[in-house]
C-alpha cells in the first residue's frame, strides 16, 4: 500500500493585483483587481514506502505548495490526498505525530534559546519517552555533529549549523514521512554536502519516505532515485534522473579529435559548433542526424578520436525550465 497517494490535487489562490503608485493604492482601497494563481493543478502522484523522491522545478512551480498541502498547512481547492491513510488538511494529531516538514527558509527553533530547550519542548509535544528521546538525540547529534552546539543560543549559530538543528528538531520524533523543502538553500558547498550525506544515511537506515524539493541538482543526484519535475503546477516528468535526458534532450554532444594538420570543413552544417580548439572540435547535433553526420565527417576528415555523449543533466533541465518559463495565460 502506497504511503502517499495524491489524486487531482489542485490549489489556486486569488491574489490582489497591486498597481504602482499612490493614486492606484488609494483606488485599491475601494476596488481591487484579482488574479487567480493556479499553484498546483490536478497533480497525481503515488509514493511507496521508503522512496526518496525529488521535486524539481523552477521557482514558483508549485513544489512548496504541494509539500504544504501534504503537511496539512493549507487546504486544497480540489482533489484528494492521503498520507499514511490520513487526509493531511484534517490536521489530526495522530497524523501530525508521524511526519515532519523541514523548510530551508523558515526557522522553528526559539531564536534566543539554545536548541536543546526547543528539543525538550518537542519531546513533550510529540510525547517522546525520555529514554527514546535521549537515544534519538544522541544518534542525531553524532550523525550531524552538533553535540557541542546544543547549548548555544540559536541566534549565535551559522546558517549551516542552524539547518542541522532544524533537521534534528524535525527528526526527534522519528517521523515515518519526511518533507524537505529546499533544505540546503543558502548553504555553502561543504555544508550542502554534509546535509546530503546525513540524509542519505538516515534514509537508508530508517527506510523513511522522503519528498525533497530542491533547486540544487547536486542534492537530487546524490539522494534520489526518482525525480518528479513540476512546472506551472503540473507534473511534467516522473522517473529516473537519466530518464530526463532521454526524454527531454533531442541532442547529442560529439567531440572530435582531428589528426594533426586537418582543418574542419564547414562542420556547422551538421549542427551547432560549441567549441573549436584545434585539433579538438565540439558539436551539438540532433539525435536523428547523428549517424548521417558521423558518416560524412569520417569520410571527409582524418579523425583520431570520437566521443558521443548526452548533454549534461543540468543543461537539459535548465533548457526544460526556460522553455516552460514563458508565461501561460491563466
Amino acid at each position: 500500500m502506497p504511503v502517499i497517494e495524491i489524486e487531482n490535487l489542485s490549489k489556486s489562490y486569488r491574489v490582489y493585483q497591486k498597481q504602482e503608485g499612490l493614486l492606484a493604492s488609494v483606488t485599491g482601497l475601494f476596488r481591487r483587481e484579482h488574479k487567480d494563481v493556479h499553484a498546483v493543478r490536478e497533480v497525481n502522484l503515488t509514493v511507496e514506502k521508503g522512496e526518496f523522491v525529488a521535486f524539481l522545478g523552477p521557482n514558483g512551480a508549485g513544489k512548496t505548495t504541494t509539500l504544504k498541502l501534504l503537511s496539512g498547512i493549507i487546504y486544497p481547492s480540489g482533489g484528494t490526498a492521503r498520507v499514511m491513510g490520513h487526509v493531511p488538511w484534517e490536521r489530526e494529531i495522530a497524523y501530525r505525530r508521524r511526519f515532519a516538514l523541514v523548510m530551508g527558509q523558515k526557522n522553528q527553533l526559539w531564536w534566543d534559546l539554545p536548541a536543546l530547550e526547543s528539543f525538550r519542548l518537542h519531546q513533550q509535544i510529540y510525547r517522546i519517552e525520555p529514554q527514546q528521546y535521549q537515544e534519538t538525540l544522541d544518534e542525531l547529534s553524532e550523525l550531524l555533529d552538533i553535540g557541542r552546539l546544543l547549548r548555544q543560543p540559536v541566534r549565535d549559530l551559522s546558517l549551516g549549523e542552524r539547518m542541522k538543528m532544524e533537521l534534528a528538531a524535525a527528526l526527534l520524533h522519528s517521523p515515518d514521512v519526511l518533507f524537505l523543502d529546499e533544505p540546503t538553500i543558502g548553504l555553502d558547498v561543504v555544508a550542502q554536502h554534509r546535509i546530503q550525506q546525513f540524509l542519505k544515511k538516515y534514509q537508508a537506515q530508517r527506510q523513511v519516505t522522503i519528498l525533497l524539493s530542491s533547486h540544487y541538482m547536486k542534492d537530487v543526484a546524490a539522494l534520489c532515485q526518482r525525480v518528479v519535475i513540476i512546472t506551472h503546477g503540473e507534473i511534467k516528468f516522473d522517473g529516473s534522473l537519466s530518464g530526463i535526458v532521454d526524454r527531454f534532450s533531442g541532442q547529442k554532444l560529439i567531440t572530435l579529435q582531428l589528426a594533426g594538420d586537418e582543418t574542419p570543413k564547414n562542420l556547422a552544417r551538421f549542427g551547432q559548433v560549441i567549441e573549436e580548439q584545434l585539433p579538438k572540435v565540439k558539436l551539438r547535433i540532433d539525435k536523428a542526424n547523428v549517424p548521417a553526420a558521423l558518416t560524412e565527417i569520417l569520410a571527409q576528415h582524418t579523425v583520431e578520436d570520437i566521443v558521443v555523449e548526452d548533454p549534461p543533466l543540468e543543461e537539459v533541465i535548465a533548457d526544460l525550465f526556460s522553455q516552460v518559463q514563458t508565461p501561460v495565460a491563466t
Binding site: S71, G72, I73, A94, R96, R97, L101, Q108, I125
Partner: peptide, 10 residues
C-alpha cells in the same frame, strides 16, 4: 511562520 504551529501534534 504560523506553518510550524499547524504542524505540531497539539
Amino acid at each position: 511562520n504560523f506553518d510550524f504551529a499547524l504542524l505540531k501534534p497539539i
